[in-house]
Design a protein around this nucleic acid. Structure first.
Lengths: 335, 335
DNA sequence: TTAATTTACGCAAACGATTGCGTAAAATAG
DNA sequence: CTATTTTACGCAATCGTTTGCGTAAATTAA
């Protein structure tokens, strides 16, 4: 029963003295094939454990029934939850999800996008890394054949599908909460400048300050790439020169770096400085003193992004309507 | 320049008045093609942005140059690090890595394995979930065509490739350390019974107790599947009936559940009960009171597993030598 | 100068599945 | 009983590449 080599249609056709096309149609329960023949073929196929070769099917049908998702880092809980949402929808609709990581390298990102296109994924979910121009370059050269939905970090133009959370609103709320706690010198540890999430979060932060009559001090705003080194230098410099009484951190990693840096300060600062940051880490609430968290609806974002993508993939009519979904984030651990 | 449809070999051959085979060979720099022709073909191909269709290539060559890795959950830092190690090696050797999650569902796992086989992945890295028999069933039916390396949770027989950490040693050290701290009623929150890691960790735990002259109390040993519900019930029951003075937790999730449960106890127990657990979470060291961590060399495990797999894939001679690598884990945050 | 070899290319089969079309035999219509 | 339709199947092209083999022309050997 253990075949050394996977069974193919022609094996069945020889064994049953039928043509390959008859076997193929019989397995798909085609009305062109007699009931008796179908039964014979199907039972034989299941007996010898026949599984269609997906490579061959893909080549013929020009689709692969899988979608790709490219994220910076799967260990980041935010992205892991997004992936889970995507899988939830995609699997229900018969699609597989292939996960790629860029580790925040634009070069890797470009290679992956090229590969995804060459492997003929049916669609792509993308949160493009810092340097957007190169990536757009590649996306153009891929051609219009690859449906794309952007999430989290998204292009500014309106001719694409996008799913984000309301970064402005979340940043506004988080900063306002810090102000309510009596903080005035609120530092903002921002992500890479120039990308959508950084811009919006900065805008929300600034608006909250101005709304409370506090002027925005550029010295308290620090951009970090995703290198630990850069973030630490920024934190050290802020502490040496400005001693903020609160931090608003723009990403999972930055939140924890802030937290760690603050914990290393001498008391009473260590327990007085408040931190609020974007994070979906499942165990963030265990930290004492608290790390207040802006939690994004990552699972839902993934679900919606996947639905948008699969809808455009399976859509028959060509006139595309670009969607732009914005979901609210919630502020937690605010005691 | 933007082509609506990907360029294929026949497009080039028509444009240049050459045969498809000549174009194909020219692009591979075959010695059978004249230098002049090669130049023309290559420059034209790059001008029109030709990218070989990987589906067609795979069908012809009967390999896909990608390997699959199946993990329970990518958000688990241990597995995320493993994946990173695998990618590191695989990418250097020209292979792509496709990541799948089982969410600890055997049914999903089986479907994924089948899919991996049908999509003709060149190899598979697998940490099989609880119920091993079904999975083995599937692996048999796939046939001997799919090279597999097991990691973390591994089969007991010796006719397969395996990469693990020294679970016995790690559990022995962790338990011994708790004993040194003066703890005697040490509970063991174990994973699903019957799988390799659970068995070995239990053995190390028991050996450490016996070595210190402490008898092993079965009431203090609790198996949990990966459902939060079950773990919480176990914890509650332990606290109500036995009030352990320390916990040894067998996985990332269990470690954090223990920690959370203990923190909810009334003082002074909350700060007296010590916890040591397997975890690779990058921010575990920020917790106060401390969560002592058994950290596995996940990145290296991934690297080694990928090397073993790629070596068997690219090996010409058929005589396989099964490898069994065991790496040490280290105990951290022991103040 | 003839024979043997090399160079540079084209033809066509393969990989495994799908599908439009053709066609005997059987069933139904007239 | 002939004409038409239906049933049930096979042939062969196709998806995009790769590659064994064949072969004219060009080169080298004798």
């Amino acid at each position: 029963m253990d075949q050394e080599r996977p069974v193919k249609l022609s094996d069945i056709s020889k064994a049953l003295n039928l043509s390959v096309s008859t076997v193929s149609r019989a397995l798909k329960d085609s009305h062109e094939i007699g009931e008796e023949t179908k039964r014979i073929v199907q039972s034989y196929a299941s007996k010898v454990n026949y599984r269609p070769n997906l490579i061959a099917q893909s080549l013929k049908e020009m689709n692969t029934r899988y979608i790709a998702i490219i994220v910076p880092e799967i260990s980041n809980s935010f992205f892991a939850e997004i992936v889970n949402g995507v899988e939830f929808v995609a699997n229900n609709r018969g699609y597989h999800v292939v996960i790629y990581q860029t580790h925040d390298s634009t070069e890797r990102e470009i290679n992956i996008i090229r590969d995804v296109a060459r492997r003929k994924a049916d669609g792509l979910l993308l949160s493009p890394s810092t340097n957007q121009t190169d990536v757009n370059e590649v996306m153009k050269s891929i051609g219009a054949k690859l449906p794309v939905v952007y999430f989290d970090r998204v292009p500014s133009d309106n001719y694409c599908h996008k799913v984000v959370c309301d970064n402005y609103q979340a940043a506004f709320e988080a900063t306002s909460w810090l102000i309510q706690q009596g903080k005035r010198r609120i530092a903002h540890m921002a992500g890479p400048s120039g990308i959508s999430i950084s811009i919006e979060r900065l805008a929300g932060y600034s608006a909250a300050l101005l709304h409370a009559g506090i002027s925005v001090d550029p010295n308290l705003i620090r951009y970090s790439n995703f290198l630990a080194r850069e973030a630490w230098d920024n934190l050290r410099d802020l502490e040496e020169k400005y001693q903020p009484d609160a931090y608003f951190a723009s990403s999972d990693r930055l939140s924890f770096y802030c937290y760690e840096a603050v914990q290393q300060l001498p008391e009473p600062r260590a327990s007085e400085v408040k931190i609020v940051g974007f994070t979906n880490a499942p165990f963030a609430h265990l930290l004492r003193p608290k790390l207040s968290a802006i939690v994004q609806p990552a699972f839902d974002m993934g679900k919606i992004a996947a639905e948008m993508l699969l809808n455009t993939i399976t859509k028959k009519n060509k006139d595309i309507e670009y969607g732009f979904i914005k979901l609210p984030a919630v502020l937690k651990n605010t005691e």
